[in-house]
Amino acid sequence: MGMALFLLLTLVAGLWRVLRGPTAADRMLAAQLFGTTAVACVLLLAQAFDQPPLRDVALVFALLAALTAVAFVRRAWAAREGGDADD
C-alpha cells in the first residue's frame, strides 16, 4: 500500500515535466513514465487488496502506453510540425 502511494508521488512529480515541456517530446516522455509507473502501482494494489483482476488492468495499461506513444510519434508530433512552432 505505502509503496503504491510512493509511486503515485513520483508520478505527480513527473507531472512537472509535462507542464514544463519544453518540447512536445518531453511531455510525451512523462506520459510514458505514467505508463510504467501506473503498471507498477496497479500490480501492487492487486497484491495489497487481493484483487487478481487488477493484474489484467495492468496488462491493458502496458499495451495502451505503447500504443499511445507510437500514435504520438506517428501522428500528433508530425502533424503539429507544420502548424504551430511552440517548441
Binding site: 510504467t36 503498471v39 500490480l43 493484474r55 495492468a58 502496458a62 499495451l63 502506453a65 505503447a66 507510437v70
Partner: peptide
C-alpha cells in the same frame, strides 16, 4: 507484463 513494458518502452 514486464516483457511487454520492456518491449514497449525500448521501441
Amino acid at each position: 507484463i514486464w516483457l511487454l513494458v520492456l518491449l514497449a518502452s525500448a521501441s
